[in-house]
Design a protein around this nucleic acid. Structure first.
Lengths: 328, 328
DNA sequence: CTGAAAGCGCTTACAG
DNA sequence: CTGAAAGCGCTTACAG
C-alpha cells in the first residue's frame, strides 16, 4: 500500500502538502493540487485510518452494546445503527454481552483502547456512574438511566395500556399478562401499563412472570391456562413470548382468537409469519436504532443536541389474534 | 489515559523496558519487572491498541461481510463469529451489503484502511480475483469460490435430496419446490438435490422460483397451489419461504400436514415458533460461523490450516408439518 | 539486562 | 503557498 510519503515523492512536494490536500486545509497552489491529485490517482493511495486515529485520538468507530444479536429484537436495531453510521462515515462494532457485567466491561475497555468515538448501549447492567467513568459520548437505547445520558425508547407504558384496553374492548373478560423479568425496565413499564388498564376497567386479571424466550413462556402459559380456564385474553410482554403463548393455547386445544385473544409487544417480523398472524404493539425499531445513532454522532461531533430523551410512539397492529370489531 | 511514557517515568525505567514487560519479550530483571508491574497498576495503564496497530500493521479486528443482519439466518452466524473472535482476542466488524457490489467494495476498502486482519464473506457478489486483489486472509461462508479461498458450507445438495425423499416416503405424490434466485449458489445446490430425488423416484413435481422473503413466497405459492391443486408436498428452499407457503396454504384452507406436507431449509428459530412447527433441514449455523472464524484466525496467525473446504452435514428435523411414520 | 533512537503513517503548528 | 520538525503511543533492532 502506498503511503503519504510515496505520494509526496511522486508529486514532488512535501508530505505536509499532501496532507493539506487530503484534509482540504490551509492554502494550496493550483499546481501543487494537480500534482498531488495525479500522484494519488497513479498510486491508488488511500490514507491510513490507523495513523489518523493515533494522531486524532478517535477512530470513526462506534460501539453497539447489546445482550444478544440472536434475540430477534436486535437485528433490525443493529441494522438501523449501521445504516446511519455508514452515512456519516462511521463503522460500528457490535458486542454481545449476554447481560454479563464483566463481559460488558471488558468489551468497553477493549473499545476504548481502540479509541472508539462513542457507545450505544442497549443493555441493562451497568450504572450511570460506571458509564460516566468511561468519559465517552453515550446513548442509552431501550432504557434510560438518569437525565444526563441521552436515551431513546418507545412508550412502553402507553403501548401496553392500549393493548390491554383493546383486549377489553374486544370482549376479553379475564386477562393474563405474561411479563418479563423484574430487573428489565421495559418489562416493568409494560406491566404498569397493563395494570393501569385493568384497574381502570375493573377487569379480572392475573400476572405471571417469564423469561423472554419462547420455551419459558410456553411452559408457564400452559400451566397457567390449565389452572385458570377462564382466561380469555393474553397480553404478552414480547412477540416471542406471545408465540410461546400461542403454542400453549394450541397444546390445550384452545382456539385463538375465538377462545382467547392475544396481543404481543415489539412488532418483529416473526409476528406476521405466525398463523394466525400476531396482533402486537409495534415499536418503531428501525427508527429507534437510527435515532440513537444520530444522537450519538451529534455528540461525537460536538453538534447541538436539541433533545436528550426520546419516548417514541408505538403502533397498535391489529392482526388475526384479535376478534374483529363487530364483536365489540 | 496513561501512556507507556507515564508508566516508564513512574517505574523509573525506559519505555523500552515497559514494552518488554508488556510483550514478555527480551530479558527483564526481577526488580524492573516489579517496578513496571506496580506502575501499571498504580496508573491503571492499558496499552493503546491504535499505536500497536500502526506499528504491526494489524488491528486484531476481523470483518464479517453479510447481505443483511435482519435476515434471520445471519444473527446466529454473526453471534458464532463474534464468540470465537472474542476467545482469540479479536473484535468483529459486521457489514451489511444488501448484495450491492459497490457497497461491499467500499466496506472492504474502509476495513483495509483500518488494517483489518481478515474477512469472512457470506456474500455472493465479488469474484475470486476481486478477493485476491485485497491480499487479506479470507474465508467464504455459505458459498465457495475456487479452490484457493477456504470455505465453510453445509451440504445443501444432500440435505435437499433427503428432505425431498422424506416427503416422498411420507406419501406425497406431487411435490412443489419453491426455490431461491438462480444467482444464489445455495439455492442452486438445493434445487439440484431436489431434482435428483424426484427423478430417482419418478415423482411428479413442479419448480417455482421466488425471492427469499416471506411475502414473495406466499404470493407465488398461493398462485401455484390454486393452479395445481394436486400439490401435496412442498420443499421450500428456506424456512422463511416455508412460512410463506404455510400462509398460502392456510389462505386456501388447505391443511398442513394432512393436505400438504411441508419441509423447509435452514433450521432458524422461527421454525419452532410456527404452528404447526416446521419440519426442516437444519444447517449447523452456529458451527458454520464458529468454524469460519477459527479458519480465518488460523490463517491470520499463520498456523497450519489442515483443511480448506468444509461441507458440513445437515440434520433433518421432523416436526409437525410432516405426517407421522405410520402413514408411510 | 537496559536505554536511546528510529520508525509505523499521519497531522499540524511554526517559520519562512 | 510550502517544507522541516515534532508528536500521536507504541515496538524493536542495536549498542552497551
Amino acid at each position: 500500500m502506498a503511503t503519504i510519503k510515496d505520494v509526496a515523492k511522486y508529486a514532488d512536494v512535501s508530505v505536509a502538502t499532501v496532507s493539506r490536500y487530503l484534509n482540504k486545509k490551509g492554502y494550496l497552489s493550483k499546481e501543487a493540487e494537480k500534482a498531488v491529485a495525479g500522484a494519488i490517482k497513479a498510486l491508488n493511495y488511500k490514507p491510513n485510518s490507523v495513523a489518523r486515529s493515533l494522531y486524532h485520538k478517535n477512530s470513526k468507530m462506534i460501539g453497539l452494546i447489546i445482550p444478544d444479536i440472536s434475540n430477534p429484537f436486535f437485528p433490525e436495531l443493529a441494522r438501523a445503527v449501521e445504516d446511519v453510521a455508514l452515512t456519516y462515515g462511521y463503522t460500528v462494532v457490535t458486542c454481545n454481552t449476554d447481560d454479563d457485567v464483566e463481559k460488558e466491561k471488558r468489551y468497553i475497555e477493549a473499545l476504548k483502547q481502540k479509541y472508539v468515538d462513542g457507545l450505544i448501549l442497549a443493555t441493562n447492567e451497568l450504572t450511570a456512574d460506571d458509564y460516566k467513568s468511561y468519559q465517552l459520548p453515550l446513548v442509552m437505547l431501550d432504557r434510560s438511566i438518569g437525565d444526563e445520558i441521552p436515551s431513546v425508547r418507545s412508550d412502553n407504558y402507553k403501548g401496553a395500556k392500549q393493548a390491554t384496553q383493546l383486549l377489553i374492548n374486544r370482549g376479553s373478560q379475564f386477562i393474563a399478562h405474561i411479563r418479563g423479568p423484574k430487573r428489565v425496565q421495559t418489562a416493568e413499564d409494560r406491566y404498569y401499563g397493563f395494570k393501569q388498564a385493568v384497574e381502570e376497567n375493573n377487569m379480572a386479571h392475573i400476572v405471571i412472570e417469564s423469561g423472554f424466550d419462547l420455551e419459558s413462556a410456553k411452559q408457564i402459559m400452559q400451566k397457567t391456562l390449565s389452572e385458570y380456564p377462564m382466561i380469555d385474553g393474553i397480553f404478552a410482554s414480547s412477540d416471542v413470548m406471545a408465540a410461546g403463548a400461542m403454542k400453549a393455547a394450541k397444546s390445550l386445544s384452545l382456539n385463538i382468537p375465538n377462545d382467547i385473544q392475544l396481543i404481543g409487544f415489539d412488532g418483529i417480523p416473526l409476528g406476521e409469519m405466525l398463523i394466525p398472524s400476531l396482533s402486537t404493539v409495534a415499536q418503531p425499531i428501525y427508527k429507534m436504532g437510527a435515532l440513537s445513532a444520530r444522537l450519538l454522532i451529534k455528540q461525537i461531533e460536538k453538534q447541538l443536541v436539541e433533545r436528550y430523551h426520546y419516548n417514541l410512539e408505538t403502533t397498535l397492529l391489529e392482526r388475526e389474534t384479535l376478534r374483529s370489531e363487530q364483536n365489540e
